[in-house]
Simulated assay, not measured.
Amino acid sequence: MYDSAGLQVLSREECLELLGATAVGRLVYTERALPVVHPVVYALDGECVVLRVPDGSAALVARDTIVAFQIDDVAPDLSRGWSVMAVGHATEVREREWLARLHRLPLASRGHGGGDHFLVVDLEVLAGRRIP
């Protein structure tokens, strides 16, 4: 299927496959009524995006809110590429068993001295497009 711009519409499964194959994305949230785009390292866990955020990170403002998450890979000349966008609730994980499992994901600590937080974004809306 193609959209009105002639881009191929990706299925949810194709979007999840692309999310699982990359490691850097953009977390989009609101701070003081203004949009913020924050680059983040992430891992896919089932149908959730998991972020390991250092203590003091600006991205912690996004916890307990609705956020957008976006990844892409587009050639500079626009001859090929794709984009995936998700919307969902961002929740900070505090349960000990869940944290133990998330610590095993391939997410290196980005902070100095520990104090990392894990934010999980449930992928409630997921859409993607590919340049044919």
Rank of each mutant, 00 (worst) to 15 (best):
C48H: 10
C48K: 11
C48V: 03
V49P: 00
V49I: 08
V49R: 01
V50Q: 02
L51G: 03
R52Q: 06
V53P: 02
V53D: 11
V53N: 12
V53H: 11
D55C: 11
D55Y: 11
D55S: 15
D55T: 15
G56R: 14
G56F: 07
G56E: 13
G56H: 12
S57T: 00
S57M: 00
S57C: 00
S57D: 04
A58P: 01
A58D: 11
A58C: 00
A59L: 04
A59S: 12
A59G: 07
A59Q: 03
L60W: 13
L60F: 10
V61L: 02
V61R: 09
V61E: 09
V61K: 08
A62R: 09
R63G: 03
D64R: 14
D64T: 14
D64W: 14
D64G: 15
D64E: 15
T65K: 14
T65G: 10
T65E: 12
T65S: 14
I66S: 02
I66C: 00
V67D: 05
A68C: 06
F69P: 00
F69C: 05
F69D: 02
Q70W: 07
Q70F: 08
Q70M: 07
D72E: 15
D72A: 12
D73H: 15
V74L: 13
V74W: 12
A75E: 15
P76N: 11
P76Q: 14
D77I: 06
D77W: 07
L78A: 11
L78V: 07
L78R: 13
S79T: 14
S79D: 08
S79N: 09
S79L: 00
G81A: 07
W82N: 11
W82M: 04
W82S: 07
S83E: 06
V84Q: 13
M85T: 12
A86S: 08
A86F: 03
V87T: 09
V87L: 08
G88M: 04
G88D: 10
G88C: 01
H89W: 14
H89I: 13
A90K: 06
A90N: 07
A90E: 10
T91K: 04
T91Q: 10
E92Q: 15
V93S: 01
V93M: 01
V93K: 01
V93A: 02
V93N: 00
V93D: 00
R94W: 03
R94N: 01
R94I: 04
R96Q: 11
E97D: 14
E97Q: 11
E97P: 01
E97G: 05
W98P: 00
W98R: 11
L99V: 03
L99M: 04
L99T: 06
L99C: 02
A100C: 02
A100D: 09
A100W: 05
L102A: 13
H103S: 06
H103A: 09
H103I: 01
R104S: 03
L105Q: 05
L105G: 02
P106G: 09
P106V: 06
P106R: 15
P106L: 07
L107F: 10
L107Q: 15
A108T: 10
S109I: 05
